[in-house]
């Protein structure tokens, strides 16, 4: 368990900004699910729960999710269930139980860029932007490819478009971390294939996505594309599975996801 020496509870984002500038080593408190696993001594902690960041707003074109929105809120949100085949609620629904999901926050889950994340593949399959206090707004892919700098994630903005999405995962046990996951989306003619928990962080299989996008509708061989994805991405071994098994499973999950999108 971590310990906190001093705590700040700002009410506005501009106060947050001042604090972040004043204390370069400030630690943002999300739902504390992951923080709790460490015995870190936190000199300065920042609580965002009074900054109006715990709401999901639906606008004409976007769904905006505040950083302090819990995974449970996402799971239950009508808009997120209605759009994108409910891929995001589906992805979070595998994470432990409702009580945990009522604690864990989306901001932390995205900011921390976990390799095992169920959330990142689903978000990458959508047109997702992240909003950072200092870094400003940027596409999620760009954020993920940047090295972690000290910043605060404030919002996630998803463009409402009529894409079809499938989310797939493989776990040894129900409430376990995924040993591999995949998301596939199709927006108009454009496909995106994402594979995560390799165990490295979710990544878009760019070549395979292109291959699928360029093949004429109806002539897609999902198996070939899935194979291409498994060749293009790198896989590693850890306690949950070996690299070879992950690579083989990548083919299965991607194929299933493509077929679900086409169904």
């Amino acid at each position: 368990m971590f310990t906190i020496e001093s705590l700040h509870q700002p009410q506005t984002l501009s106060e947050v900004k001042q604090l972040v500038e004043k204390y370069p080593d400030i630690t943002v408190l999300g739902g504390c699910g992951f923080l709790k696993l460490s015995s870190r001594k936190i000199p300065v902690a920042l609580d965002l729960s009074r900054c109006e960041l715990e709401k999901i707003h639906e606008t004409e074109q976007h769904i905006e999710i505040g950083a302090m929105v819990t995974l449970r809120d996402i799971e239950k949100n009508p808009a997120l269930n209605q759009w994108f085949d409910g891929a995001l609620p589906k992805a979070v629904s595998h994470i432990l139980g409702v009580q945990f999901r009522s604690c864990a926050t989306i901001g932390a889950s995205v900011y921390a860029k976990y390799g095992f994340s169920d959330i990142l593949p689903a978000l990458l399959a959508l047109d997702t932007q992240v909003e950072l206090l200092r870094g400003g707004r940027m596409p999620l892919v760009d954020f993920l490819s940047k090295p972690i700098t000290r910043d605060v994630l404030t919002r996630i903005v998803i463009t409402k478009d009529k894409r079809r999405v499938s989310y797939q995962n493989l776990r040894n046990a129900g409430a376990d971390f995924p040993l591999l996951n995949a998301a596939v989306s199709k927006h108009d003619a454009e496909w995106k294939i994402i594979v995560g928990a390799r165990p490295a962080r979710a990544e878009i299989a760019v070549q395979a996505s292109k291959l699928l996008t360029s093949s004429a509708y109806g002539t897609v061989d999902s198996g070939t594309v899935a194979m291409a994805a498994s060749m293009e991405l790198a896989f590693g071994s850890n306690n949950k599975a070996s690299a070879e098994y992950r690579q083989a499973m990548c083919q299965v999950l991607v194929k299933r996801a493509i077929e679900e999108v086409l169904a």
Binding site: A173, A175, N239
Partner: peptide
Amino acid sequence: LQSNSFMTYKIPGRSD
């Protein structure tokens, strides 16, 4: 011993 929590040592849950 690396399987030293319910996070890493999975006892069956009800859906398993």
